[in-house]
Simulated scan of single mutants.
Amino acid sequence: MTETDFFLSDFNTSKASIGSVTWKTPSNIALVKYWGKQEPQIPENTSISFTLDACFTLTTLEYKLKNLTVTERSRSDNDENEISTPLNHQDYSFEIYFEGEKKDDFKPKIQKFFERIVQYVPFLKAYDFVIKSRNSFPHSSGIASSASGMSALALCIVSLERSLSGVEMTEEYFNKKASFLARLGSGSACRSIEGELIVWGNHTKIKGSSNLFGVKFPYKVHENFKNYHDTILLVDEGEKQVSSTVGHQLMYNHPFAQQRFQQANDNISKISEVLQNGNLKQFVEIVESEALSLHAMMMTSNPYFILMKPNTLKIINKIWEYRGVTKSNICFTLDAGANVHVLFPEAEKETVNNFIINELIQFCQENHYICDRIGHGAKRLSNI
Rank of each mutant, 00 (worst) to 15 (best):
W23C: 08
K24R: 15
S27Y: 02
I29L: 06
I29C: 05
A30K: 02
L31D: 13
L31I: 15
V32I: 15
Y34N: 03
W35C: 04
W35F: 02
G36I: 09
E39R: 01
E39N: 12
P40Y: 10
Q41F: 12
Q41N: 14
P43I: 10
E44D: 08
N45T: 06
N45E: 09
N45P: 06
T46S: 13
S47Y: 01
S49K: 04
S49D: 12
L52M: 13
L52H: 03
C55Y: 02
L58K: 07
L61H: 10
E62Q: 11
E62A: 04
K64W: 06
L65P: 00
L65T: 11
L65S: 13
L65H: 04
K66T: 07
K66Q: 12
R73C: 12
S74P: 00
R75Y: 15
R75F: 15
N78P: 04
E82H: 14
I83K: 14
S84H: 10
T85W: 11
N88R: 09
Q90E: 15
Y92H: 13
Y92S: 06
F94T: 08
Y97L: 13
F98W: 01
K103V: 08
D104L: 06
F106P: 01
F106R: 03
F106E: 11
K107C: 08
K107T: 07
P108R: 03
P108D: 04
Q111M: 04
F114H: 03
